[in-house]
Design a protein around this nucleic acid. Structure first.
Length: 502
RNA sequence: GACUCGCUAGCUCAGCAGGUAGAGCACCUGACUUUUAAUCAGGGGGUCGCGGGUUCGAAUCCCGCGCGAGUCACCA
């Protein structure tokens, strides 16, 4: 990495200090944000000044247009960009010299002055004084094309954020999403709780966990793959409407819709069933999409998705029957395998639940608009109640949007004897080599034996909803700091350190 | 994991009949007191992803590796 500019900056910083200009001061009293200034003074006439208003704003210098005895520069903060104007006769010769000599694109600068509109009608700040707040020693990405290299974008997300307003906004939307959820649920008497991520055994979902070790107990531990089993313990304890938003970790593949660390929300609602959960899911996602995208009809990767209610509901067995001609409730295993093979899908295991999952995968991509797929067979739903009028299936639904599973919910199984039986079946699968089968959780069963109210439960992968709302083609675009293969910048960093030691 | 494509200055890219590397932005110097991709003049900056091979000579051709992107397969 040859970095002439960086070396120049380091020299400049020394020089600044010699001249008594601190490159990294402690504080700036900021009274106005870029977006606010633009809004508040948009009604000024061209060339009009408002000298009675004092503005103190700060941000990163994104553009610098120097004209000898004056300069225009653009400051960017997390509300937008605002142009500032500085001139020799307003800040004085010494100060102006410092500006010319030391302010570069990329630096943080604070400005004190008053609002005005330029001849060409841009709301700006007329600087009466300025302060360098933090010197940057690396060059910014190109101002017009920005960063395009995906590798840099993912590995140095800060570089994308600081150079792309679109990126900054994308992650502001992420934050806004979680604010909206909390607001929505608080209005309905749901309270936010938390559960452990570090566990002695995992459960609540079918997935391979990350393994780690704890030194004090000298024992193996797992990162959680779901919040479910602990949130239900809250219900046993007496909580009625709870939710948790947090990370889950699954030691499986990475794809445009899978990321090993992802943000899941689970919600449990005592005295409700899966029909109630369907209603609240529909209402909540509808509410969030409308607020974030401005409409319940959005365009995702060139395809329209319509969130207007009510959403389509199809029974899993019917949908597979209609599309593949297989009956997952009645047909023999052999018949299911036959159908799978006909569609070039080779089952890894002959276990019936696995066959059903594979069949489902074949038809999932037919669903674009929000669709509730309901009544999954008991065999693939170890934590949900048997359907009240059909013992072959459960009171369960998954929400599919744009071929992605967005939510999974059911009338929660609260019969401890039945739950024990289901765990035994899962344990059998595990012994037969299914690494994703659930583990027997005796403490959870003990909790159920104390009694858990009838409950509707829900899990939503909000990252995927966020993909839709921001029209992002991959989940990595909406995870601020996605997982990347560790390597490659060692050399670069080593060199940087050597330079610093000079 | 398989296949396809990519990796050249800090960033965005050009250069590939094999002849020793270029532009724009950014940076430095100078001019310029309402510009907005400011303008004008001049200048510095590269182990062409890494390693090996072919060749008098490789950014360019061949092989291996690394990292990334896309498609497919699998788990939310």
């Amino acid at each position: 990495m040859s970095e002439e500019t960086r070396r120049q900056r380091l020299r400049e910083i020394d020089q600044m200090r010699e001249e008594g200009v601190e490159p990294y001061p402690y504080r700036f009293e900021k009274t106005h944000w870029a977006g606010d200034i633009k809004n508040e003074f948009s009604t000024l006439e061209n060339s009009q000044t408002k000298e009675d208003v004092e503005i103190r704003t700060a941000g990163r210098v994104m553009a610098l247009r120097s004209h000898g005895k004056s300069s225009f520069f653009v400051l960017r903060d997390d509300t937008g960009r605002i142009q500032a104007y500085i001139r020799l006769d307003s800040v004085g010769k010494d100060s102006f010299e410092i500006f010319k000599k030391y302010v570069n694109i990329g630096d943080f600068v604070g400005v004190t002055g008053f609002p005005f509109k330029t001849h060409t009608g841009e709301v700006s700040v007329f600087a009466k004084s300025f302060e360098i707040l933090s010197k940057s020693i690396r060059t910014m990405p190109e101002k017009w094309h920005g960063l395009k290299d995906k590798e840099i974008i993912y590995r140095q997300r800060y570089a994308e954020m600081l150079s792309s307003d679109e990126a900054l906004n994308r992650f502001k939307i992420r934050s806004e999403l979680f604010r909206l959820i909390r607001e929505f649920l608080a209005q309905r008497r749901f309270i936010e709780v938390d559960t452990p991520m570090l566990l002695h055994l995992t459960g609540g979902a079918s997935a391979r966990p990350f393994e780690t070790r704890i030194n004090v107990f000298e024992s193996q531990m797992f990162l959680r793959i779901a919040e479910e089993l602990f949130l239900k313990r809250y219900l046993v304890g007496g909580f009625e409407r709870i939710f948790e938003i947090g990370k889950n970790f699954r030691n499986e593949g990475i794809s445009y819709k899978h990321h090993p660390e992802f943000t899941m929300m689970e919600l449990y609602w005592a005295y409700a069933d899966y029909n109630d959960i369907m209603d609240i899911t529909e209402a909540m996602i509808n509410h969030i999409v409308e607020n974030l995208a401005g409409s319940t009809r959005i365009s995702y990767q060139g395809r329209e998705i319509d969130f207007s209610r009510p959403w389509r509901r199809v029974k899993m067995a019917d949908f597979i029957q209609d599309n593949l001609g297989a009956n997952i409730l009645e047909d023999s295993d052999e018949r299911l395998i036959e159908v799978l093979k006909k569609h070039n899908s080779e089952p890894d295991m002959k276990e019936r639940g696995h066959l059903i999952e594979k069949l489902w995968d074949l038809v999932e991509d037919k669903l674009v608009n929000p669709t509730f797929v309901t009544e999954h067979p008991v065999i693939i739903s170890p934590l949900s109640k048997v359907h009240r009028s059909d013992p072959r299936v459960t009171e369960r639904f998954e929400l599919i949007i744009s071929s992605m599973e967005m939510a999974n919910a059911f009338s929660e199984l609260n019969d401890p004897i039945e739950q024990h039986r289901r765990f035994l079946h899962q344990a059998g699968l595990r012994e037969a080599g299914d690494e994703e089968a659930q583990m027997m959780d005796d403490d959870f069963l003990r909790a159920l034996e104390y009694g858990m109210p009838p409950t509707g439960g829900l899990g939503i992968g909000w990252d995927r909803i966020l993909m839709l709302v921001t029209d992002s083609p991959t989940i990595r675009d909406i995870i601020p700091f996605p997982l990347v293969r560790p390597i490659s910048f060692e050399e670069e960093e080593l060199q940087s350190e050597e330079e610093l030691q000079e």
